[in-house]
Simulated assay, not measured.
Amino acid sequence: MNQTIITLCAGTLILSACADSGANYTPILDGPTTPAFQSDLSACQMLARDQRQFDHETAAAAGLGAGAGALLGAADEDGSALGGAIAGALAGGVSGAVNASERREEIVVECLRGRGHRVVG
Rank of each mutant, 00 (worst) to 15 (best):
S101V: 02
T58K: 10
M46W: 10
M46H: 08
G96E: 01
A17H: 11
L13N: 08
G121N: 07
G92I: 02
G69W: 04
A74L: 08
S39P: 15
A48C: 06
E57S: 14
G96N: 02
L8T: 05
I5V: 13
G65A: 02
A60G: 08
T4N: 13
L82P: 05
A23R: 06
I107G: 09
T33Y: 08
G63L: 07
T26P: 08
H56E: 06
D78Q: 14
L13F: 06
A89K: 02
L82V: 13
G93S: 02
A97S: 05
V94C: 08
L112K: 03
V94W: 07
N24V: 14
G79V: 02
L90W: 01
G93M: 01
L13S: 10
G114V: 07
I5A: 09
A68W: 07
G83F: 00
S39G: 11
P32C: 06
A66M: 05
A62L: 00
S80K: 10
R103Y: 09
M1N: 11
R113K: 04
N24K: 15
L90Y: 01
C18F: 14
P32H: 12
C18M: 13
I86M: 00
R104E: 04
A74I: 03
A43N: 06
T34N: 10
H56L: 13
G65F: 03
G92F: 00
G79Q: 01
G92Y: 01
H117D: 02
L82M: 13
A97M: 03
A60R: 11
L13K: 07
I28P: 10
E102K: 10
T4V: 15
P35N: 02
A85L: 04
V120I: 04
I28S: 15
M1I: 06
E77D: 13
G22C: 01
